[in-house]
Amino acid sequence: MQAATKTDPVSLAAAVPVPGATAEIVPFRAPERPANDRLKEIANKTASTLLPPLIVLGLTLVAWQLLCSEPGARLPPPTKVVTDAWDFIVDPFFDNGGIDKGAFWHISKSLGRVAIGFSLAAVCGIALGVLVGQSRWAMRGLDPIFQVLRTVPPLAWLPLSLAGFRDSNPSALFVIFITSIWPIIINTSVGVRNIPQDYRNVAAVIRLSWWEVFWKITLPATVPYIFTGLRIGVGLSWLAIVAAEMLIGGVGIGFFIWDAWNSSRISDIIVALVYIGVVGFLLDKLIATVGHFVSHGVSAQ
């Protein structure tokens, strides 16, 4: 007789009073604080994000200095790196002809290659990803091939592309392209497959055409996934270009390292490594920032 107890005529929910009056909406204003306080807060925040990495960096440099200071050490200590590579550090814009150029010229040449190869990979990768995400047959046919090809290391493609293009520059571009395209394809297709049924229902009710669904639902819903793929892709393409340039030669930060090794300029190599790391970091942040704006801060689940 459980049911009998549940049939009391007046429930709590019905008895909850609902105020009929609507309140005026007044914008909430944070109380003003003295500028001093705010400055202090900003300083505190900056210190808490900047101090830990700076301390760790300092400790590493000290340890490195101590370890490599003994006579007969195989690698130069930081102080020697700075004095050896001083010209290379202070003037990134010199140009003595040939490949004897400043860091700026090497890095911008490499970045230019990445820009071309990566843009091609982005366009083709997103297109293929949408195809694979939307069509079951395309997925069944292409996905196994993608899964095998994506594990091929970038440099393994180089001989083949040299044979195909018979020129070092397009070969380098192809290596970047083929390295960075896989995560873009895979993430885009996952994004397309994960579009909530609700969005498709909405599109069906308002009768969007195939093309409108693509532009107004599929692409925007997939943007967070696409940018995840682009971020991984840009990192991989930077890895690939440095490796590829070592083999194909000419101007570029990759060959700069190889050239420095051949003439035993270890300090230059170390400086170049720092530059490569910083540039790779900035590339990643750049794509992340663009993605943040394009997706209006709506991140992938």
Binding site: P196, Y199, N201, V202, I217, P220, A221, S295, H296, V298
Partner: peptide, 9 residues
């Protein structure tokens, strides 16, 4: 729809 189904972008 039950879960509002607004397009977040």
């Amino acid at each position: 729809f039950q879960n509002h189904s607004l397009l977040p972008w």
